[in-house]
């Protein structure tokens, strides 16, 4: 008996933001990232019969998305004929001295590591958000990620502000718990 089963009807609510974050990290164009997420879901549906249930749904979907990202870069490169590599010796034209030495990565720079860590953090947070009850994750994401006004959210969801703050409170408490386990 397989350990995991697919529930395509819950995919969008559970994984769309998670996959979207992953895609945006690799393709900065949000429109393209959105399309890739959609294509991932379609491809998942198409090959649902091949799903053996050994991996969790999320892992399986992210594996499909990875392929989609690679395919995307292949496609845009082949459109141009071939991959183009443009490289100047230096972006600072007025730099003098040894050009090679100026290109060496700064070993003291922590910027690159920060980027990687922030992306992992983002995925960890999304994973925790997707474990929340649907209404809570919706309210939390509208408020925190999309930065919507309390009033607008209340209107859109037909709730009153004190409902909203209670949901935010539950969501935040659950997230702190979840991140405590998975991140720190």
């Amino acid at each position: 008996m397989a350990e995991h089963q697919l529930h395509p009807e819950t995919w969008v609510d559970k994984y769309a933001d998670y996959l979207f974050n992953y895609a945006v990290g690799r393709i900065s164009d949000a429109e393209v990232a959105k399309d890739l997420v959609q294509e991932t879901f379609f491809a998942g549906l198409k090959s649902a019969a091949n799903y053996k249930g050994t991996a969790a749904e999320r892992t399986w979907l992210i594996a499909i998305l990875k392929r989609k990202v690679i395919d995307y870069y292949r496609k845009i490169n082949s459109n141009k004929g071939k991959a183009e590599v443009r490289m100047g010796y230096s972006s600072q034209m007025d730099a003098d001295g040894d050009w090679l030495e100026e290109q060496v990565a700064d070993p003291l720079s922590i910027l690159e590591n920060d980027d990687i860590e922030n992306e992992e953090l983002g995925l960890a947070i999304q994973e925790c958000i997707s474990k929340l009850p649907q209404k809570q994750s919706l309210v939390f994401s509208m408020k925190t990620i999309q930065g919507m006004d309390t009033e607008d959210i209340c209107k859109e969801l037909g709730i009153n502000p004190s409902n909203l703050w209670v949901m935010i409170h539950r969501a935040r408490t659950a997230l702190m718990d979840c991140l405590n386990k998975n991140w720190f």
Partner: peptide
């Protein structure tokens, strides 16, 4: 701390109307 983590992570989310559209298209294919 949670607030600063969320800020640091540069979270992205799909707007709700895109999700609704996506859901419909998936349902059409199930």
């Amino acid at each position: 701390e949670l607030t600063s983590l969320c800020k640091k992570a540069h979270l992205h989310a799909l707007p709700e109307k895109d999700k609704v559209k996506m859901k419909k298209e998936i349902e059409g294919k199930i």
